[in-house]
Amino acid sequence: MVSTETQRHGPRVLTPQQVPEAAEVLRAGGLLAFPTETVYGLGADATDGRAVARIFAAKGRPAFNPLIVHVRDAAAAEAFAHFGATARDLAALFWPGPLTLVLPLRAGHGLSPLVTAGLDTVAVRVPAAPLARDLLRATGRPVAAPSANPSGRVSATRAAHVLEGLGDRVDAVLDGGACAVGLESTILRSGPPALLREGGLAAEEIEAALGHPLPRDVTPGKVQAPGQLSSHYAPARPVRLDVTEPSPDAAWLGFGPVKGDLSLSPDGDVVEAAANLFDHLHRIDALAASQGRDRIDVAPIPEAGLGRAINDRLRRAAAPRM
């Protein structure tokens, strides 16, 4: 177990050259925040129940909300999850990358029951970020890792966001700079495929690979996968969407021709907007606080491609607080 001495002095911030030290934090039962191409994850050894329990405590996360398990390659995932033919084809096409597959658990899988929140399935992915893959190889174990932020708050896309949100509740942060995608992974249920969460891989790309449209099941009555709570990704202030006119009592997050106080993408590029989303939500929330404004207004985002995933996160940010 990582000592309380580490916690009293705050988390260690590790460089990319310190991957062996980062892996040792995980093997010792500690919490490590690390960058993927999507967002920073709050990682723990997925086979260590005490370590996984620390994730829930650190985030203030409801115990019924499952976690994504990160592995170095598909072969590592096959040790604890069943792959049908379609899932295997999708993994071959989109792993490593921002796609999470929800798969049936194998008997004797060895994962902590906390990882799956009592379900008979597990959410798993192979991240594309080279630093994350180096870490997983060095750790040699599956790593459970939700986004490295307090539950329901804005996800972290920089090490500074992790430190601001979680502070000494994490033992160490592996600083790999800004996340390239900046939006959580797309989650797909296997057998038959259904979209559970929009994310960093556009649904159209999956549909093109499958050769048919994907049924959507993005907010079911029962939580089946991470990120399905209706109120999530929320700044401290209420959020109002699809705003095209400024209001004096709100900080305004723009997009394209709607400039705002800060813009997700002045050029109207949804890829740039996705990469900026969580960082800009942090920044606009801070701006609203500094200027005494009591709301965040957000410009319209096109409901297509990654725009759908951005709007999904924004609708959850704007939902009534749980």
Rank of each mutant, 00 (worst) to 15 (best):
Cys179Ser: 10
Glu198Thr: 08
Glu303Cys: 14
Arg158Cys: 11
Thr186Gln: 02
Gly200Lys: 08
Val271Tyr: 13
Pro98Phe: 08
Ile68Asn: 00
Leu183Ile: 11
Asp279Leu: 15
Thr157Ile: 08
Ala208Gln: 14
Ile55Ser: 07
Ala57Tyr: 11
Val271Arg: 14
Arg72Asn: 03
Cys179Arg: 06
Pro302Asp: 13
Leu277Pro: 02
Thr47Glu: 10
His161Tyr: 06
Pro16Gln: 06
Val223Ser: 11
Thr244His: 09
Leu183Met: 02
Arg321Trp: 13
Val239Ile: 07
Pro302Met: 12
Ala251Glu: 03
Leu136Glu: 01
Ala128Met: 10
Leu163Ser: 13
Arg27Lys: 15
Pro192Cys: 07
Asp73Ser: 13
Arg216Val: 14
Asp217Trp: 15
Thr139Glu: 04
Ala28Thr: 12
Ile187His: 00
Asp249Val: 12
Gly256Phe: 11
Leu264Gly: 00
Gly97Cys: 04
Leu135Gln: 07
Gly260Lys: 03
Val162Trp: 02
Asp267Tyr: 05
Pro104Phe: 02
Arg27Asn: 15
Glu245Arg: 03
Trp95Met: 03
Thr6Tyr: 04
Thr116Glu: 05
Ala58Gln: 01
Ser247Asn: 14
Leu210Asn: 09
Leu135Glu: 06
Ile284Leu: 11
Ala74Tyr: 06
Asp120Ser: 04
Arg125Leu: 03
Ala304Leu: 15
Ala202His: 05
